[in-house]
Amino acid sequence: MPRRHKQRNCRRLEGKRNFKPSGIPSMKLEKTELHLDEFEAIRLCDYDGMSQIEASLSMGVSRATVQRLLLSGRKKIVDVLLHTKELIINEKLD
């Protein structure tokens, strides 16, 4: 039986956020979903300039979890930019 997810402290977004290339209808684009915890880890480390340890304390998770969230979130963002996809930021935590 898998363990339950630890409660993660993330800022809530108001409404759904999506970003897509201009000039291409959304229905023609493949979609990539960025989870709120991945977005929060990227925001804390890359935008706010926190270390992974500081971000882990802020989010209430281990440093290794923050590192994993950063890797998966950054990979999704680069994939969206390289392959002309739509990025959807999911406000629900899984």
Rank of each mutant, 00 (worst) to 15 (best):
T32Y: 06
R11C: 06
L82P: 04
R43S: 03
E40R: 01
E86A: 08
A64S: 11
Y47G: 01
E40L: 00
H5I: 08
V80A: 09
M59S: 07
R8N: 02
V66P: 01
M27G: 13
K31T: 04
D48S: 07
K92Q: 11
E40K: 05
L13W: 09
C45M: 07
Y47F: 10
A55N: 06
M50W: 07
T65I: 00
E54V: 01
M1C: 14
I88G: 01
L71D: 15
R11H: 12
S58N: 14
L34K: 06
V80N: 06
T65S: 03
C45W: 02
R74E: 08
G23E: 01
E14L: 13
Y47M: 07
R12A: 05
V61Y: 02
P25R: 03
S22V: 13
D48A: 11
E38C: 05
L34T: 07
E40F: 01
L13N: 06
H5Y: 04
P2S: 11
R8F: 02
S62I: 02
M27A: 14
D94C: 10
L57Q: 15
K20D: 09
N90P: 07
E86M: 13
S62M: 03
N18Y: 15
T84C: 12
C10P: 03
S22P: 07
G15V: 06
K75A: 15
S22E: 15
P2Y: 10
L36P: 00
M1P: 10
L69E: 02
R43E: 09
K75S: 14
S62F: 04
P2M: 14
L87E: 08
L82F: 11
S62C: 07
L81P: 04
F39R: 04
R17V: 15
E33T: 13
E33Y: 14
E38Y: 05
L93G: 00
V78W: 12
D37H: 00
S62Q: 01
V66H: 06
V66S: 00
L44G: 00
N18M: 13
M1Q: 08
M59Q: 03
G15P: 00
E30V: 09
S58D: 10
E40V: 03
K28H: 10
A55F: 05
S56F: 02
L57Y: 15
L57R: 14
R12K: 10
E38W: 03
R8H: 00
S58R: 15
D48H: 15
R12Y: 05
A41K: 02
L82H: 11
L82V: 12
G15H: 09
S26T: 10
N9G: 11
R43G: 03
G73T: 05
G60M: 08
F19R: 08
K76C: 11
P21N: 04
R12C: 04
S51N: 07
P2G: 11
L81Q: 10
R43W: 09
K31C: 03
L36S: 00
R8A: 01
D46M: 14
Y47H: 10
M59D: 03
L71G: 11
I24M: 00
I77L: 15
K20E: 12
T84P: 01
N90Q: 13
D79C: 08
L70S: 02
Q67F: 15
I53P: 01
R74T: 09
A55W: 01
L34Q: 02
R43V: 00
N9C: 08
R3N: 00
L36H: 02
N9Y: 12
L82N: 12
M27Q: 15
D46L: 14
H5T: 06
G73D: 03
R68A: 08
A64C: 08
L87K: 09
K75F: 14
S22N: 13
S22Q: 09
